[in-house]
Design a protein around this nucleic acid. Structure first.
Length: 307
DNA sequence: AATCCATTCAACCGCCTGGGT
DNA sequence: GACCCAGGCGGTTGAATGGAT
């Protein structure tokens, strides 16, 4: 297929936007709303590519954009979210109101990444660089492992980001449990979390899969018989202070998480890569239903574990 | 003051995806 | 299913800026 150019190349201005151009764009969008970017430049009297207009609006002119320094909380969130999403800047941006994907991406590349490296954490894997060489072979092509950096950082005087990636990973896995717990073969989930380094010895409050089921599921009403308390998965819950399972105010809660099949795919390939065959992964990627089915069948765990 | 170098970030580019036909 | 289009996305670029020499 021949790709049509996004805009006519001739006569279009490039480079920095002038105030006048900004005014025109703002005025137009305020009057007509967002959208129709391809025709917008002509209508708004701008000699710019529609794409350029959209970007200018989305990254700079939108009224809800928060400018200025990133707060510590925002940085922590970015690190956490990066551990989950990887370089999916738009996904990360959706969780940070007022921040654009471009801004977050730039901030990551110019600040956070360097800071992590300084701390001895691989910004790609969120693992300690020191022992990363040996362990990274576990998942060579899965950069965003669930392995927490927490444990490697504990002696770090700069432990501001303690729990960051690990906690988000825990949160993420807890969400899995939350959503699928009643269908999940518990042993498999325990195994995954264990492998991911998320089983912790923290004495901080912990939350179990069965707990989460009790607290969040209303319609499916799984019972503790599905996941006996004595088998409950202990997940680092220090990160869950603001978002326990029952906390429906958690902006990260599963409404969006598992609306995003991509996350599931990433999750499956990352966490299950060592217990799931390639075919299984393909299977996992096709849709949500299989995901449950994959776990549900009792005894599946033994079949899948190839160790 | 002049030059060099590193850093930052707005903007661009090319590709991908989803929806409509 | 094939095609087309609009919008979205992530990676990259390059101008602007600031610090070091």
């Amino acid at each position: 297929m021949v790709r049509t150019p996004c805009c006519r190349a001739e006569g279009l201005k490039k480079g920095a936007w002038t105030q006048e151009e900004d005014q025109k764009l703002i005025a137009y969008v305020q009057r007509h709303g967002e959208g129709g970017w391809r025709t917008l430049p002509d209508k708004a009297g701008l000699k710019r590519c529609g794409k350029s207009c959209r970007l200018r609006w989305a990254n700079y002119l939108r009224p809800d954009i928060k400018r200025g320094e990133f707060s510590q909380e925002e940085e922590d969130s970015i690190i956490n979210l990066h551990a989950i999403h990887g370089n999916k800047w738009s996904a990360i941006a959706r969780k940070l109101p007022g921040r654009t994907d471009n801004e977050i991406k730039n901030h990551w590349n110019t600040h956070i990444k360097k800071r992590l490296v300084k701390k001895g954490i691989d910004p790609l894997t969120h693992k300690s660089i020191l022992d990363g060489a040996g362990k990274s072979s576990d998942h060579p092509e899965t950069p965003h492992t669930e392995k927490s950096s927490v444990h490697h950082e504990e002696d770090d005087q700069n432990s501001n980001n303690k729990n960051s990636s690990g906690s988000s990973s825990a949160r993420f896995l807890n969400r899995v449990a939350n959503r699928f717990g009643h269908r999940i073969n518990h042993n498999v989930l325990s195994d995954i979390i264990g492998r991911s380094g998320l089983l912790t010895s923290h004495t901080t409050p912990t939350t179990s899969v069965s707990e989460c089921e009790r607290s969040t599921s209303s319609s499916s009403t799984p019972t503790s018989s599905n996941l006996p308390m004595n088998q409950s998965i202990t997940v680092d819950a220090t990160s869950l202070s603001s978002s326990t399972f029952s906390d429906s105010s958690d902006p990260f809660l599963y409404d969006d998480i598992f609306g995003d099949i991509e996350d599931m795919t990433r999750f499956s390939s990352r966490c299950l890569s060592d217990v799931v065959s390639h075919d299984d992964e393909e299977f996992l990627m096709s849709d949500e239903s299989f995901f449950g089915e994959y776990f549900v069948h009792e005894g599946t765990c033994n079949d899948l574990s190839r160790e």
